[in-house]
Design a protein around this nucleic acid. Structure first.
Lengths: 239, 239
DNA sequence: TGTACATCAGTGAACGCGCGTTCACTGATGTAC
DNA sequence: TGTACATCAGTGAACGCGCGTTCACTGATGTAC
């Protein structure tokens, strides 16, 4: 009975933890990360505030859990969307990644801001967040490797930019992550496309497209820009 | 004596206001926008907290003043840097704008986050901020107009992307801001380059380049990517 | 199967804190005659 | 030029608030024999 009995307690714990996280996520959605209050969450869950400490060591631990959850949610969503595309359709995979990141962000602006917006003052992200954080970048890395393989066969039809040695050296962490198959020039094209996507999403979410692009046409605007990024990212490949 | 006497009072007011703003800016730099507290600022200025209300209607008004100041500081800095470049050197002007935005941001991360980061919860920017906010975009607009003029003469040597009519319509606000000389395709290239720069700066400032680009080599990394953006922005122009 | 004990989820009071904002006031400085 | 009055910067006390965290406790649930 030992394991089964412990299982019951453990199950209750897991469920309660989930309820607290759900409630915290709703509070995040309504008041932002800085407005997240243990007491308010406890109130909504129907517990006294001190009871939360059975589940999370302190406020930071709750924030960390939300951050990990957000990264995992984004990771799940984008992985699923990207996996649905034919492996050989590099442009389609790029499109899927980019548009899914945006859609996910638009549906959960505060979760997006939590992980890609300005850092929460006084909060220092622990090591546990780095795994979930790299799930989406891992997809892009895989894409870049496949692009590299194709470019090996077909060539790019144009020369890469000159890169000074110091800059080349600075890219070592990225190159290590991508693997030997991906040349520097392609890596730089990848990061640029990547940061551009997040730049577009952040501008849209944080109000910087106000009076620039009509809200109604932003889907199309984003898709057009993603297509343009693909031109440079996938030099010489058919659309 | 009337005007001179009033001038004395007015001058004292202006100076006190400046002292408060300076102190508030320091607090912003240390605790972020959400951590900005009227009481703490007053304490540092050496006044009682209620005295601040002689100068700012409430906390939001102080925040608004800081936002306007940040936009103006960025505007000043970038305008000066861009003005120092030969008008005909389009690539140089682009470089100056991009690198100066980044340098300004790195020197004042919290001011950057205040205006380009996640919105401050509960704060709604009033109309007064839109003028200062567009100063930097105005520089890019002028650049795009000059690019358009050159492309009229020389051509781009390649076809623009297809843009669906709905998207074309959504770009009306931007096209109106840029003026008739700037064609849609160039406008889209401009926004993309623009958002990419802010994407790069935000990634760097908000910690997303951790384990991607060595901190030491980020100047060079940024410049390389800006050069790459120029290739697409200034299609067919000499470097 | 029944009982003594250990575990642990949740309570409720309390701690000490800082916050934004209001309000009646004092006293110095400027204004009008 | 001298005086009565108005303006207004800054004071200090108070309001009501919510926060994170600690701690001794109760009582239900699981464990061991």
């Amino acid at each position: 009975m030992t394991t089964a009995a412990e299982g019951v307690r453990a199950k209750a714990r897991r469920e309660m933890r989930a309820v607290i996280l759900d409630t915290a996520r709703e509070h995040l959605a309504q008041h932002g990360a800085t407005g997240l209050s243990l007491r308010a969450v406890a109130r909504d869950v129907g517990m006294v505030s001190s009871a939360l400490y059975r589940y999370f060591e302190n406020r930071d631990a709750l924030l960390t859990a939300l951050i990990i959850e957000a990264y995992d949610s984004l990771g799940d969503t984008v992985e699923r969307a990207e996996a649905a595309v034919d492996r050989d359709d590099l442009r389609g995979r790029w499109r899927a990644i980019a548009t899914t990141v945006r859609r996910w962000a638009l549906e959960r602006p505060h979760q997006y801001a939590l992980v890609y917006g300005s850092p929460v003052p006084g909060y220092r992200a622990p090591q546990d967040t780095v795994g979930p954080a790299t799930r989406v970048t891992a997809l892009l890395a895989a894409l870049l490797r496949d692009v590299a393989a194709q470019e090996d066969r077909v060539g790019t039809g144009r020369a890469g930019l000159d890169v000074p040695p110091a800059t080349r050296r600075a890219m070592a962490p990225l190159l290590a992550f991508l693997g030997d198959e991906v040349p520097l020039d392609l890596a730089l094209r990848g990061v640029l496309a990547w940061t551009a996507v997040f730049g577009l999403v952040s501008f849209e979410l944080f109000g910087q497209l106000h009076n620039v692009v009509d809200p109604d046409g932003r889907d199309g605007f984003f898709e057009t820009e993603v297509e343009r990024l693909a031109v440079d990212l996938l030099v010489g490949y058919p659309s």
